[in-house]
Design a protein around this nucleic acid. Structure first.
Lengths: 263, 263
DNA sequence: AGATATTTGTTCGTATGTATT
DNA sequence: TAATACATACGAACAAATATC
């Protein structure tokens, strides 16, 4: 029998089990504290393995496991050779999203769940970049739009266009000054990219989606050029609502198809 | 994007390519793919160490490092003893937040950054729970509010009250049907809990914060009782704006103090 | 309760790979 | 080319935990 983990169950403030951690995990914690206490910054070097063995009173294998733990958390990076060693690293956004993606792999959110959040975050993001774009930045955005200004010739181009549309949003986020908002917008985009349902939808022709998306983005850029944050937010909101309706409709169609031909 | 990895026989005896990832990291990836391909669910057991050594052609130490990687990612859990072994696990929300917290440790967002997002997510969350609360759930929320219905007698009670206020939001999220929205709301709450600036603010008396928070929450519960999602959203928005203003003001005061007495 | 079997957890000695000098 | 300093990898032996009988 498997303890079913209730997805809704919260991260309760008090962990039910404080015990049960293996030694390498505990040593990894100690190392993390040690790094923080010493105020080590990204780029700084940790002591060599032998010294770590001394300091944390554990064997080479255990130390190595602990280092690997920190490495998968994206906090350190090891290099071989002289002058090599283990170095503190700032966790990259990409890595953070990868780790977080594992969580939603089991949660398996619906398209509606994602868009419900995206619908309110993306407008806020759009508003936050108003007045922060130089002419070169507008050029960059328009260049991306060029990829899907014409209807696609085949399914491969169709797929490339869908991705370019997501790229448009991703580029926009580059200029968002709020790191929390930026991360969350980007993460939702990556969730959409990875969702199998979305992949299936993107594999089919979506002429309406392309056309409406394009028109929204043109309007959005106009609003941003005149540094009108409120308008940008409003336009993005409409865009998201339209996209959500479209995606959910397609999802329903695909599910109906799947139910009709169950294997 | 990710090619399907042949489940068996990964590495040739001598892998002349050491580019980038270390071997344990690569083996961890292979294991993950192997788990996905076999459709293993949380609770399912992985082969024992000896068999893994056979299957992935690596030494015990390397296999253990790979397992540790998956363990820190929250994907597996190992137990000793007969009937023990390594088991697939669903990444818990708490663990996911911990991992994600490492990212924002370096990003170091301001209170304003966090509230800018919280201000729009919490209202959406409040609206989403309207009509989903039974009488027992209201009782639970009111019980939490009891903790700070009276002004605190000392600083310790002050701190307990601040945490109870965050708990109120956390409990509310329990009933949010959208896993993405729920996770993000909870994560922002945990970010606030951990931010050192916030800790310092919470350590001081905040009579205004308590009183205004309490009144908003009373109004919120009333709206939820009559299942008025729009009102709940509106009230929560006001609550967040007020809280943000208050926190930023306190932050400014603390910073001024800090600058005046720099050690 | 106690013995035992099973499985992970830890250690150590040694060997190999890699990059600098 | 050789010497070096460092991480990386391997395998055997031992320790600890925990079911079952």
């Amino acid at each position: 029998m498997s303890d079913v983990v209730d997805p809704r169950l919260p991260a309760s403030p008090e962990a039910p089990k404080g015990r049960g951690k293996s030694r390498p995990l505990k040593i990894a914690e100690e190392m993390k504290d040690w790094i923080v206490v010493r105020g080590l910054q990204p780029g700084d070097r940790l002591p060599g393995e032998r010294e770590l063995i001394e300091r944390f009173q554990a064997s080479k294998g255990t130390i190595r496991e602990a280092l690997r733990v920190l490495e998968t958390q994206g906090l350190v990076r090891s290099r071989t050779g002289p002058g090599g060693g283990t170095f503190v690293e700032a966790l990259s956004g990409a890595k953070a999203m990868e780790l977080l993606g594992n969580y939603f792999f089991f949660q398996n959110p619906t398209i509606g769940d994602i868009y419900a959040v995206r619908r309110i975050l993306e407008p806020e993001m759009a508003a936050s970049v108003a007045g922060r774009l130089a002419e070169a930045d507008f050029k960059r955005l328009e260049q991306t739009m060029q990829i899907y200004v014409e209807p696609p010739q085949d399914l491969e181009e169709e797929r490339r266009q869908r991705h370019a549309e997501l790229d448009f949003h991703s580029i926009l986020v580059d200029y968002c000054p709020n790191p929390v908002l930026a991360f969350m917008c980007r993460f939702l985009q990556s969730l959409l990219r990875d969702l199998t349902v979305c992949k299936r939808i993107y594999e089919e022709p979506n002429p309406d989606l392309r056309e409406s998306g394009l028109s929204y983005q043109v309007r959005l850029l106009r609003a941003l050029r005149r540094q009108d944050a409120a308008a940008a937010s409003e336009i993005m909101f409409e865009h998201m609502c339209t996209a959500q309706r479209y995606m959910e409709e397609r999802e329903a169609v695909l599910q109906a198809k799947f139910l009709q031909v169950p294997d």
